[in-house]
Write a protein that binds this DNA or RNA. Structure first.
Length: 744
DNA sequence: AGTAGCGGACTTTTT
DNA sequence: GTCCGCTACT
């Protein structure tokens, strides 16, 4: 989802010309066609930066305002929560008021909503739990045990992947064929899959794949339910159609194909930006659209309002090397056809690359460009470290997008597990997670005993534990502590009904001793973890019930943390899809890194083409400057390896690029210094900018207590003209530029 | 029950 | 080079 192909315009502010409502103004003819072709199937091929989001949201508004449907009769599907949120905001903006009761969300969120209504058709109840990946894997490991699978050859995560791919393709255990089955885990995969699904039902739980799979299964087998949705959804809008997998496609087709009525489904996508085949996406879905929906119309959006001519030219030249495209040619929609060429820089090694990129970023920054408008886009996570180190040294504020997220932190997961067991006493996985956190003396042996007790009574683990306690089947310290735990759980449930979920959760975390566990923890992370828990409890109050909150966390899994300050973004190419920046740095364009060797090995030509699309996505993120880097040698794990420039570099048309091979790094460094410290016009800006006030260590003295935004509090143990050496509380000693060091 | 030590892996990732 | 998970001690 693009953030800002266009500056948002108040669509109702300008007077409408005769016959056309105001919101259709200032759209190009293709965009208008994509919006006004409301009835029948429509495929909108929207190249990068062609106003896709605007088309989708305006189309939604158009359907409403032309009286074709009510807000709740339009189904709008996105892939990410971010896209969904953005769409909701924009639609509200277009309509001039917040809209309620929309069927707008991610595939999974929409399916969760449907499944809550019809859970009993697939053996669940309304209050089912949605498991996270952690729990899925733990459950699968448990289920696998009886088969005594050689976990060297078939590790649980691998099998999980197999099951997920089956789910992506709409295969319930019964639909997995023998041939398919024989390929994995010595032919036991289907049986394990069956057992896994059974166990999920016993836990009244489902995983992410199940949300789609169960709903599709219900729609396939319950004509009455399907009919209900056919009546409800008059129009369907789908974003990022090239990323849909088979089950999502089936789900859409089931909902769109209404007997006696046209399929008013509009899918927006770009086959050139399909980069998720490895997690089940089928580009074929978009390539096949006309066959799937006979009479489908196709609109191509090819006018790009984002990037300069050279950036577009470079990207177009690159992607032209792919076969089997639906074919689009991006043209610049901008008047200024000039702009800078894409800069391709070759450097000596990966460290020089990090230096070159960061120095260039500093230089753009010195010229007045905001760090928020710059991004370093890497192929794989391991590449970020070199940049991170250099950025810290340079003192450029940055943020890593897609690192460890709030809801994935251990303390958050523990707290969530506590809430889950309160919400759903049958959630064995949650109970297992927290039974010995804090330590209650429950080891594997004791856990076995509890499992046995539960099984014997045919009750969930928590109930089994309670029963065993009541009968005096447990002894000593462990019995006492488990008693306290069970007691805390039951009092929490009381409070939940009487005083609401916020008070209940506070009580829960306190009485179970979970908060005390961190309060007594002397490690440096403990205070931070307590802060996170505080924040979690705060977030609780944004939701009406505990169940709603748990759903939100399971499905939405995001939490904005200090996104406030302008920071340079460091992320993977995958993570950058849908975003745009003035300046984009693309390091690591070397054979084996990008295109990734592993993709080539596993995916052959198809893999190569997906890598090329990834490169295309990378370049088209840039509005003004795209800078590509490659190093002659790179340190991979322990040793240095020579590396060849990426074949993609040869595919960039010469007229759109400038090559600056080797030795660029030291040169640029000098330039940076010059521009920062010598350029006249920058003086005023320099003063207010902490980074540019750099290289002045005079205001610090040995022994000063200081704070660094990243490393925390420390003491200066040595200093020269440019650097401070600081011993931090964490025990680390770092040599840093003084820019972001604050005296305390 | 807890941890030291060893061997193996090591793209991408949303929901 | 580093992290993670499993085994084998204490």
């Amino acid at each position: 989802m693009s953030t800002s192909e266009h500056p948002p315009s108040p669509l109702f502010s300008s007077p409408a010309p005769e016959g056309a409502p105001g919101y259709l103004e200032r759209l190009n003819p293709e965009q208008r066609a994509a919006i006004e072709t409301t009835d029948g199937p429509l495929l909108v091929l929207a190249g990068a930066g062609t106003g896709k989001t605007r088309v989708l949201t305006t189309r939604f508004a158009h359907i409403l305002l032309s009286g074709r449907a009510k807000p709740w009769q339009i189904l709008t599907v996105t892939f990410t929560n971010k896209a969904a949120r953005e769409m909701r905001e924009r639609i509200s903006f277009l309509l001039g008021e917040p809209v309620e009761g929309l069927w707008l969300g991610t595939f999974h969120a929409l399916c969760a909503r449907m499944l809550r209504r019809h859970a009993e058709y697939v053996g669940l109840t309304h209050g089912f739990t949605i498991l996270d990946t952690d729990d899925q894997l733990r459950l699968l490991k448990q289920v696998m045990e009886p088969w005594r699978i050689d976990t060297k050859r078939w590790p649980a995560p691998g099998l999980m992947g197999v099951i997920q791919r089956w789910k992506d393709r709409g295969l319930t255990p019964a639909r997995v064929t023998d041939t398919e089955d024989s390929d994995f885990a010595d032919g036991h995969a289907r049986a394990i899959y069956t057992a896994y699904q059974t166990r999920l039902r016993e836990l009244n739980a489902c995983d992410f794949g199940d949300l789609m799979l169960h709903v599709a299964e219900i729609l396939r087998t319950r004509p009455d339910v399907l009919d209900q949705y056919h009546r409800l959804f008059r129009y369907i809008l789908v974003d990022e159609y090239q990323d849909t997998n088979t089950i999502q496609y089936l789900w859409l087709r089931l909902l769109a194909k209404r007997t006696g009525y046209p399929s008013n489904i509009c899918c927006v996508g770009d086959d050139d930006q399909s980069i998720y085949s490895w997690r089940g996406a089928e580009v074929e879905n978009i390539l096949r659209f006309e066959k799937d929906f006979p009479g489908a119309q196709i609109v191509r959006l090819e006018r790009n309002y984002r990037s300069t001519q050279h950036i577009l030219g470079a990207a177009a030249g690159l992607i032209a090397h792919n076969d089997g495209r639906l074919g689009k040619t991006l043209r610049s929609g901008k008047d200024d056809a000039s702009g800078e060429k894409v800069l391709v820089t070759g450097v000596w090694d990966s460290e020089a690359e990090a230096r070159a990129v960061c120095d260039s970023a500093a230089s753009f920054h010195a010229k007045g460009q905001s760090l928020a408008e710059m991004a370093i886009l890497v192929r794989a996570g391991f590449q970020t470290r070199a940049f991170e180190e250099r950025l810290v040294q340079t003192g450029l504020p940055y943020r890593i997008v897609g690192g460890v997220r709030f809801y994935e932190r251990a303390e958050i997961r523990d707290a969530m597990a506590y809430m889950r067991i309160v919400n759903q006493p049958a959630d064995d996985l949650a109970f297992e997670r927290i039974i010995n956190v804090p330590k209650r003396g429950v080891g594997p042996a004791a856990l076995q005993k509890l499992h046995a007790a539960a099984r014997a009574r045919q009750v969930p683990l928590a109930a089994g534990t309670q029963a065993l306690l009541d009968e005096g089947g447990l002894k000593g310290k462990m019995a006492a502590q488990l008693g306290t735990l069970m007691n805390a759980l039951s009092t929490t449930r009381d409070i939940l009904t009487r005083e609401g979920h916020v008070v209940a959760v506070e009580h829960l975390l306190e009485e179970t001793g979970y908060l005390d566990m961190w309060r007594n923890d002397r490690s440096i992370e403990a205070p931070g973890r307590l802060e996170n828990l505080k924040e979690l409890v705060r977030a609780l109050s944004d939701f009406g019930t505990l169940g709603e909150f748990l759903d939100h966390v399971a499905l939405v899994m995001e939490h904005d943390e200090n996104a406030g300050d302008a920071k340079l973004s460091l992320m993977t190419l995958h993570g950058a899809k849908g975003l745009e920046f003035d300046t984009v740095f693309l390091p690591g364009w070397e054979e084996g890194v990008f295109p990734s060797q592993r993709t080539l090995d596993e995916g052959g030509l198809k893999g190569l083409e997906e890598e090329r699309r990834l490169a295309y996505v990378g370049i088209t993120r840039a509005r003004k400057h795209a800078l590509i880097f490659h190093a002659d040698r790179r340190r991979i794990y322990a040793n240095w390896q020579p590396s060849m420039p990426s074949r993609f570099l040869d595919e960039l048309p010469d007229e759109h690029i400038i090559r600056k091979e080797n030795g660029a790094a030291p040169q640029q460094r000098l330039n940076m210094t010059d521009s920062v410290f010598a350029n006249g016009p920058l003086t005023t800006r320099r003063r207010q900018d902490p980074m540019l006030a750099d290289a002045n260590t005079a205001s610090f003295q040995l022994g000063d207590h200081v704070r660094h935004p990243r490393f925390g509090v420390g003491i200066i143990i040595s200093a020269d003209r440019h650097h401070l050496e600081i011993a931090f509380e964490s025990g680390d000693t770092k040599r840093l530029l003084s820019s972001f060091i604050e005296k305390i």
